[in-house]
Simulated scan of single mutants.
Amino acid sequence: MKEYAKEMKIQDLDTAQLERAASMLKAIAHPMRIAILSHLEEGTRLTVTEIHKLLNIEQSTTSHHLGILKDKGVLVSQREGKNTYYSLKHESLQNIVNCVSKCTVNL
């Protein structure tokens, strides 16, 4: 189940919230993790196998990156039978992926 929070401004956040935000951004700040997030846009749910095939990386590497993103509150997982599906914990995280894509076009 995804969590939604009311829109807040940075100055409204307390120290603990800023620490959590920084931790999430650090987790995202890796080329492979940004690529993973780009495939989980708009409510998409994917398994480890689907992600590792999309990115052409080892399944163990994919699991490692997914674990970090989940641990830092960026992703959620839902087990269905033999499969575990990953998705964005907060749909607004899609804005970060969009921003990174737009900001790197003209570098």
Rank of each mutant, 00 (worst) to 15 (best):
P31G: 09
M32R: 08
Y4P: 03
H30S: 09
R20C: 01
Y86G: 03
S101M: 13
L18C: 03
Q59E: 14
V74P: 05
A29H: 12
T62P: 08
L25S: 12
L69M: 09
A27S: 10
T49M: 11
L55W: 01
V76F: 04
K72G: 09
Q17G: 05
K102S: 14
E80I: 10
G81V: 00
L18R: 12
M32H: 02
L54S: 05
E42W: 13
S63C: 11
E41F: 07
D14W: 13
C103L: 15
H64G: 08
R79D: 07
V105M: 14
N83T: 09
G43T: 11
Q59T: 04
H65Q: 02
H30A: 01
T84G: 03
L25F: 07
N95W: 08
N106H: 10
A27Q: 02
L18H: 05
I96T: 07
K82H: 06
I34A: 11
A21K: 15
S87Q: 15
Y4G: 04
K102W: 14
L54T: 00
T62K: 01
H52T: 04
L46Y: 00
M8V: 06
E42A: 15
S77K: 04
L54W: 00
L40I: 01
Y85H: 07
G73Q: 11
Q59P: 00
G67M: 06
T44M: 15
T62H: 02
E50C: 00
H52G: 01
H30F: 07
L46F: 01
